[in-house]
C-alpha cells in the first residue's frame, strides 16, 4: 500500500453531471402521479379498481376481435366487426370511462393538498404552472388508456383480420386520426373537469362525491328540462355526454339522436374546459404560499 493511501468515505458522492430541464421535471411529476393513481407501488386495494375498469374498457374490443378470430372471415364475422363501430366505442363504454375518471383524477391532486406536499414541490424546479401541466398530463395518460388504447386495438385487429389489410387501410385510414382526436377530446374533458373539482378539496371522498354529483345533476337537469320544455338545446346541460357526442361527430356516418350539431357539442366541451382551467388557475395560481 502506498504511504499516500487514505480511507475515503465513498457512501456520499457529489453529482456534477448535467441536470435536466423544466420539461423533464414536468414529465417526472406526470408519470409518478399517473402511476400512483393507477395503483403502482401501492397495495393491491389501490390496484383493483383501476385494473378492473381498464379491463372493462378493453372488453368490447377483445370480444369483437376474439369472435372474429373464431369465426374467420365470413359474413357473420364481418357483422361482428360492425357491431361496435369506432364512432360508438367510447359511448359503449361511457360509464366505464366516467367511473375511471371519477376514481383517478381525485387521486392525482387531493393527496398533495392533504399532505401539504405542494410546498415541497414548489421548493423544487416545479412552478405552479408546471404543477398544473404535470397533473393534466398525469390525468390524460390513464384516461387515454381507457379511451384511445381499446379503440386503437380494435382498429389494428380489424385491419389484421380483414381479407385485404392494405385495402382496408387505404379505405379507412381517416378513421385513425378521428379515433385519436375523439379520444383526446373525451380524455381532456374528463381529466380537466375531474382535476378542477378535485382541486377544491383535500379530501378524496369529497372530490369523488362532488364529481359524481356534478355529472349526475347536470345529466338529470338536461334530460328533465329538455323533455319538460320540449327544447332540445337543454340537452346541452348534460355536459357529461358533450365530449362523447363531439367526438362522435368527427365520424361521417354519425347522427346525433337529439339532432344537435357536433359543433355545438364541441363548443360546450370548450366552454366547460375553459371553466375548469380557470378553476385550476385560481386554485394554484397564487404567487405565494
Amino acid at each position: 500500500m502506498s504511504s499516500e493511501a487514505r480511507l475515503v468515505d465513498t457512501a456520499f458522492t457529489t453529482y456534477q453531471g448535467p441536470r435536466a430541464g423544466r420539461l423533464a421535471a414536468i414529465w417526472s411529476l406526470a408519470h409518478w402521479s399517473a402511476l400512483r393513481a393507477l395503483g403502482a407501488r401501492r397495495g393491491w386495494k389501490a390496484k383493483v379498481i383501476p385494473i378492473s375498469l381498464t379491463l372493462l374498457a378493453f372488453a368490447p374490443a377483445l370480444v369483437v376481435l376474439g369472435l372474429r378470430a373464431i369465426l374467420g372471415s365470413g359474413s357473420v364475422s364481418r357483422s361482428v366487426a360492425n357491431a361496435v363501430p369506432y364512432s360508438d366505442y367510447i359511448s359503449t363504454i361511457a360509464i366505464v370511462v366516467l367511473v375511471f375518471s371519477v376514481v383517478i383524477t381525485p387521486e392525482l391532486v387531493c393527496p398533495d393538498r392533504r399532505d401539504r406536499t405542494l410546498s415541497l414541490y414548489f421548493s423544487t424546479a416545479i412552478g405552479r404552472l408546471d404543477y398544473v401541466l404535470g397533473k393534466i398530463a398525469a390525468a390524460l395518460m390513464p384516461l387515454l388508456l381507457v379511451t384511445l388504447a381499446p379503440v386503437l386495438l380494435l382498429y389494428v385487429g380489424t385491419v389484421l383480420f380483414s381479407v385485404h389489410p392494405v385495402g382496408y387501410l387505404q379505405a379507412n385510414w381517416l378513421d385513425l386520426p378521428r379515433i385519436i382526436v375523439s379520444s383526446l377530446i373525451v380524455a381532456t374533458f374528463y381529466g380537466l373537469v375531474g382535476l378542477a373539482i378535485s382541486s377544491l378539496t383535500s379530501r378524496r371522498a369529497f372530490a369523488v362525491g362532488g364529481y359524481l354529483a356534478f355529472l349526475a345533476i347536470s345529466t338529470v337537469m338536461g334530460g328533465v328540462l329538455s323533455h319538460a320544455l320540449n327544447a332540445r338545446y337543454f340537452r346541452l346541460l348534460a355536459v357529461a355526454a358533450a365530449p362523447i357526442r363531439a367526438g362522435q361527430g368527427l365520424f361521417p356516418k354519425y347522427s346525433d339522436p337529439g339532432n344537435i350539431s357536433p359543433v355545438v357539442w364541441g363548443s360546450t366541451v370548450v366552454e366547460v374546459c375553459v371553466v375548469a382551467v380557470i378553476v385550476l388557475a385560481v386554485r394554484y395560481g397564487r404567487d405565494e404560499g
Partner: peptide, 14 residues
C-alpha cells in the same frame, strides 16, 4: 425511497 428519487428528478437529476 420513491419520494427521494422523485424529488431528485424534480431537481434535474436523470
Amino acid at each position: 425511497r420513491d419520494l427521494v428519487v422523485h424529488m431528485g428528478e424534480l431537481r434535474g437529476l436523470p
